[in-house]
Design a protein around this nucleic acid. Structure first.
Lengths: 300, 300
DNA sequence: ACTTGCCATAGATTTTATCTATGGTCAAGC
DNA sequence: GCTTGACCATAGATAAAATCTATGGCAAGT
């Protein structure tokens, strides 16, 4: 079995026709025929039922194709990861919850790299996708938090996916509010204080378990709920609607603007923010440097 | 990039030496040298640092090897799954919780297949491993239950792993007890009845979240707890120690023996027992037949 | 200095992949 | 019922690759 053979059968299955698939693959039709035949002989299976009207997947072939696609997905990751270096293009991918320090570190990494050709992705996304991205090597590192409520579920999910959690820092729960909010005068806030105001939180897609919420205390009842996907939108609503959001309180004025302020929240909980890595893969140079920057930024 | 190249570098990394690796791979040393060189050139990376004392993985190489191992794991699955059919060996793998009906169906499948060369695996294992086995295609099907307590977590885990849950039947919670147990006289049992007796449950390995427990109500307090891995051991203890275990009540006298009886448990809960399959793969003929047998057996 | 254990290079050789040309089959259209 | 067109299969030639043998160079140990 070769990588090429797998690509070939996937293409043929898509086209439903060897002749066209051969054109698409820029090879001659007999080459494709024999490549498929060889694979079928190797495993003694019939992937395609041939007729003069084209080909059709056999049930056996359908099953085989499932395996083939899995292998190709993995293989394509290598191609994507390393083809770039051919052209000198530097690549780096992070998936993170919406933390300004993660963005800040990302920007500094990019500056430090000094590369003139690069492809960097900052994926501020839903908690589950972070785990999934890192597990499937679409991102080399992920950033998320644990607390006593979600810890068990998240750690289990990480373990299932052969990922490790490495703590960066422990944050006291804070509340982000607009600087003109009536709450802005208080030194600290309680859940009681927040009750009359709209609560903002990040949408978690179809993985809507509250274990995967980006905010702690998401199970506490609340009358006014606003759910968004975008950090800027969230900040707009904080200001415009006197809303609030519960978070780690790691705030950077340059990034968040002067209109957002953080207040301590009096509550018996914590957020353990850290990064996740795949156990199976030695972190790349860029990843290590990103971790260093994260540590530097979060020490402050 | 070819799979051969990946195998080569993994072997070389293991041996730490091109000459020996070449022997192990039954190729000449220069062939191996050039295969590695070619891979390195393709992606413009240096996987091994050469010296006259042998080779050493570079950090870059360590990272690459992580990707390579992931791909090879996947390809080996194909080899394992299909090499067998070459020799006419029939293969089938199930992972399941400890249900006698799953074993019964397995035995019937084997009989029906009529194969004289086969390799069948019945993996009665921990809940997490079932999910993991099916997700990584080590088993083609898994069997487990949902209830209102674990449902959210299990379904999420399944979704994360691109698996589907297909219900077989809904079981009333039952209690398995020895036929000589003092509880055997009652028509049905309550949690109160069970209190004085030892509760038996299956060990769930390091994934000790109670969401993954094989028994419902595992969070209910209990003074006497016995944890085992083996079904026969569990049954021995039911009889010898007047213990009990909460389960689906699907009992087969032939398999469990005449010394174990099931009693209805009065409690507001249910067990939805079903099978899980990978979404990406069309079930094999044997898998479909196994599902048919499961359905037949559980209809009764 | 000589041997030993490595890896690298060169050129020959075998194996594999792919090509062109052609044949066979079925069904639609005249 | 013959022709045509859209397929896939086969054969033999050719180009590309993988692998081989033989040999060279380099550093460490004796």
């Amino acid at each position: 079995m070769t990588y090429k053979q797998l690509q070939y059968i996937v293409t043929v299955a898509e086209e439903g026709n060897i002749t066209n698939a051969a054109k698409k693959l820029f090879i001659a039709q007999p080459s494709l025929t024999s490549a498929i035949r060889e694979l079928e002989n190797e495993y003694n299976i019939t992937i395609f039922a041939r007729s003069n009207k084209g080909i059709k997947l056999t049930p056996e072939g359908e099953e085989f194709l499932g395996y083939a696609r899995q292998v190709l997905d993995q293989t394509q990751l290598i191609e994507e990861r390393y083809k770039g270096t051919n052209t000198g293009k530097l690549k780096f991918f992070v998936s993170a919850q919406h933390y300004s320090f993660a963005v800040e570190a990302f920007v500094e990494l990019l500056k430090r790299s000094g590369a003139d050709k690069y492809e960097f992705h900052m994926r501020e996304t839903q908690t589950f996708n972070i785990i999934d991205d890192v597990a499937h090597l679409r991102s080399e590192i992920g950033i998320l938090y644990l607390n006593k409520f979600n810890q068990e579920v998240i750690l289990k999910t990480l373990k299932d996916n052969n990922l490790s959690f490495n703590p960066l820092f422990r944050a006291e729960p804070h509340v982000f509010i607009g600087k003109n909010s009536p709450l802005a005068k208080k030194r600290y806030l309680t859940l009681e204080d927040l009750k009359p105001y709209p609560r903002l939180s990040y949408e978690q897609g179809s993985h809507n378990s509250f274990y995967f919420s980006e905010e702690i205390l998401s199970t506490v009842d609340c009358d006014k709920e606003l759910v968004v996907l975008d950090r800027a939108t969230l900040f707009n609503m904080l200001i415009g609607l006197n809303g609030y959001t519960i978070c780690s309180g790691v705030i950077n004025e340059e990034l968040n603007g002067p209109n957002i302020i953080a207040k301590k929240l009096k509550v018996d909980d914590y957020m353990e923010i850290g990064y996740i890595l795949p156990n199976s893969i030695h972190p790349s140079h860029l990843t290590s440097e990103y971790i260093d920057i994260l540590k530097k930024l979060t020490k402050e």
